[in-house]
Amino acid sequence: MPLLEVSKLSKSFGGLVALYNFNLAVEQGELIGLIGPNGAGKTTVFNLLTGLYPPSSGKMVFAGKDLRGKKPHQITRMGIARTFQNIRLFGNLTVLDNVKIAYQSGHNYGLIPAFFRLPPFQKKEKEIEEASLELLEIFRLRERAGERAANLPYGEQRRLEIARALATKPRLLLLDEPAAGMNPQETKELQSLIRWIRDHFQLTVILIEHDMSLVMGVCERVVVLDYGSIIAEGTPEEIKEDPRVIEAYLGEEGVAS
């Protein structure tokens, strides 16, 4: 049974069809790239999967459970985490707090222990702090733990977003343009990082990306969206040769010339 099974998923805003009849089956451990021109509906897929928008029609089943009608935080607790195209860190909070917030959803204590600092508070807080620092260590952000997240350089903000997403202990990680704004060197590092976290955390990853070197270098399977529909699907090599993909990216004139 696939980890995630999406069938005939559609979404329209008013008259505008953002996504039409989207089908995708993802096996445990896969690393899938989702590409397509701007406005093709890639982020819409993520927004539907994470419960930010209700779908207009179609089915989404994750680990045997229906995702429709679930609130975003419920979906997160079911094991789907994501990053955002436009970074959405908790800018005025410290780097450490950013991770703690994500980590604590599964490791909480009641209100009374919080108000009076009772033993459960002490114990869990220690646990949350240690685990969060450990995660920051992996992402080489431990020295930054006490800084305001908004003060980090761009590349580190992107890394922190991934670290924060991982703190929710996901089985499926959705990365929305993680390489946007990174230089080639950083992108290369990101490539090995993505592979490494997939193996280390036994994750399944879906990646939206415009940087073709990253997609081709890291993904085992690529799905191409255009105007809300899938126009091609296959290994990176197959996708590179597919005339429909080339047309979608370069336009008809591009093909002709």
């Binding site: 997160t76 959405r88 909070l93 707090d97 994500a102 209100l111 929710t168």
Partner: peptide, 25 residues
């Protein structure tokens, strides 16, 4: 004590970015 607990951090997260807070559970 409330503010410096996981509950208080959740409130701060909402203030900072409600959508991201939801997405962090």
């Amino acid at each position: 004590n409330f503010v410096r607990s996981s509950h208080g951090r959740a409130c701060l997260a909402i203030r900072e970015n409600e959508i991201a807070a939801e997405m962090m559970g």
